[in-house]
Every structure is written in structure tokens, then in C-alpha cells.
């Protein structure tokens, strides 16, 4: 069975296999297609109009499908690779092994936030930021530079305790689990982690940093954890909601999969 592991438990060989597969997708051009898709949705998902990838109930199933597509691309390079997840409630400093030179590389330097260690440093020659919103083509980070610490386990648990998946108006103002997990309201989980990493992770082209996938893999795991805690709480809304993906409506850009198809992840992968 395919198992997604905590990144902290990966062997050196597993880390190398993951980063090698990511670098190969980058070399072939496939990686940047994912960045383009994410940015197009993040710029067009709006609170008072059509919204699919973000600030809406389908934030979770949309990213579940997006991660599956990326994981399948990695496996086309190396069938053994699975997405790992980053539990930022545990590995919450810039000295975590996640940021080692043998994995994702470290913090950006003070002068220009440029990442200078690891396989994704610009000077490695293998990681040029092509899909960008400004002129800089090097990966940047400013770990913790936003001044607010990563969410704590207690904060995560307070959000997991929310029994209702999502609520009208089904956007960034909503009460309920989805919007608190996404972070537009309340203690702020997902959004805050993007800000904590900084650099491209704080922008619309956030998948330029490979940590995007490990962050969203943990968000996906938290959705799975929430489902186990609230087995009778359904995805909402059920039907008939303008501009919002209902349970059995297909999602762009794939147009062949619905939130209902993605509720149960266990046929595809499990979490260790």
C-alpha cells in the first residue's frame, strides 16, 4: 500500500529519491506547469465569484487532486517516490532536518533571501524560477521572517475539533473547519505557514518552492484526521450553490472529478 510518511522519518536515500524526481520534473518542464496552474487559480478564485482552488469548500479536494497529479508525475520518474508531509507543529524551526542541504536546502541569506544550500539553490544550476511575478529567478525563503511562529499542535487541535466542514458564504469569511484550516479566519493554519516560509511560498507562485508539496500534504493529512474525528460530518455544500463546487460537481481544471470522488483517500494512499 502506498504510504505517505512524515518527512522527518525519511531515510537519506528516500530524501535523495524525492529531490531527484522533483529535479527531473523541473528539467523536463513538467514542474512549471503545476506552478502555472496554481497561480492561475489563485489569481482568479474570488470571494464573490467563481472559486475552486482556494477560499472555498473545494480548497481541500482541489489540492488533494493537485497533489495526486504531482505525485503521479514524480512516480513516472521514480515509481518508489511518495509525497512526504511536513508536520510544522513538530518541526518548527529553521534548524529542522527538512531544511538540510541533503533535502530541501536552508533559509535564504540576509541580503536578498536567496537560498544558497541544497539541490534547489540557484547556484546548483538546476532550479531556475521561470514562472514568476517579479524579475528574480532564484528560489527565496525567509523562514520565520514574518514574525509569527508556526501553528502549534493545540491550535491545530482546536481547528480539528470543529464539527462542520464549511458554511455559507463558502468563502474567506466562512466559519467552520475548512476556512479555519485554510486560515482566512481564526488561529490561521495553512496561510500562516506560507507566510512563515516566505519567499515564493508567500506568493501566488508558491509551488516554486518544493516545500509547497510537503506543506499541502500535511494539510491533506489534517483533512483525513478531521474526517476520522467527525465520521458523520459531510462535505458541504451538497448541491445548488452558485460559483461554488458542490459535492457532486466536477472541478476545474480536470473536469472529470468531484469532491465526492476524493472524500476517501485510502484507496489511493494512507498516512504513516
Amino acid at each position: 500500500m502506498a504510504v505517505r510518511q512524515n518527512q522527518a522519518n525519511l531515510t537519506t536515500a528516500q530524501k535523495s529519491a524525492f529531490t531527484d524526481a522533483v529535479l527531473e520534473l523541473k528539467r523536463s518542464g513538467r514542474y512549471d506547469e503545476f506552478v502555472v496552474t496554481h497561480n492561475a487559480f489563485i489569481m482568479s478564485d474570488v470571494d464573490n465569484g467563481e472559486r475552486v482552488g482556494h477560499r472555498s469548500p473545494s480548497f481541500l479536494p482541489w489540492h488533494r487532486r493537485f497533489l495526486l497529479e504531482f505525485e503521479q508525475a514524480l512516480q513516472s520518474v521514480d515509481p518508489q517516490v511518495m509525497l512526504p508531509y511536513w508536520d510544522w507543529t513538530q518541526d518548527r524551526t529553521a534548524s529542522a532536518s527538512l531544511w538540510g542541504a541533503d533535502f530541501l536546502g536552508g533559509d535564504g541569506r540576509a541580503a536578498d533571501a536567496q537560498v544558497t544550500t541544497g539541490p534547489f539553490a540557484f547556484n546548483s544550476g538546476r532550479w531556475t524560477v521561470n514562472v514568476r511575478v517579479d524579475s528574480r529567478s532564484f528560489l527565496r525563503r525567509a523562514l520565520g521572517g514574518g514574525g509569527r511562529p508556526l501553528p502549534t499542535r493545540a491550535e491545530v487541535d482546536s481547528v480539528l475539533a470543529m464539527p462542520v466542514y464549511d458554511m455559507a458564504p463558502w468563502n474567506s469569511r466562512s466559519n467552520g473547519f475548512r476556512n479555519h484550516l485554510e486560515g482566512w479566519r481564526g488561529v490561521n493554519l495553512h496561510n500562516r505557514v506560507h507566510v512563515w516560509v516566505g519567499g515564493q511560498m508567500g506568493t501566488g507562485v508558491s509551488p516554486n518552492d518544493p516545500v509547497f508539496w510537503l506543506h499541502h500534504c500535511f494539510i491533506d493529512k489534517l483533512w483525513a484526521d478531521w474526517q476520522r474525528l467527525h465520521p458523520t460530518s459531510p462535505y458541504l455544500p451538497a448541491a445548488g450553490t452558485p460559483d461554488v463546487v458542490d459535492l457532486r460537481e466536477t472541478m476545474k481544471p480536470w473536469n472529470d472529478i468531484t469532491p465526492a470522488d476524493l472524500i476517501d483517500h485510502t484507496s489511493r494512499y494512507t498516512y504513516a
Binding site: D32, E69, K252, W254
Partner: peptide
């Protein structure tokens, strides 16, 4: 356009072409 981009034959972003 996004759907096209996500499909098999995406060619919209040559290296160095900004997201814009």
C-alpha cells in the same frame, strides 16, 4: 486556458517566460 495547460500537450510556458 488553464485546463489546456494542465493537459498533456502544454506548451505555454517556455523557459524564462514570466507567469504574467
Amino acid at each position: 486556458a488553464v485546463t489546456g495547460a494542465a493537459a498533456v500537450t502544454f506548451t505555454g510556458v517556455a523557459l524564462g517566460v514570466p507567469v504574467a
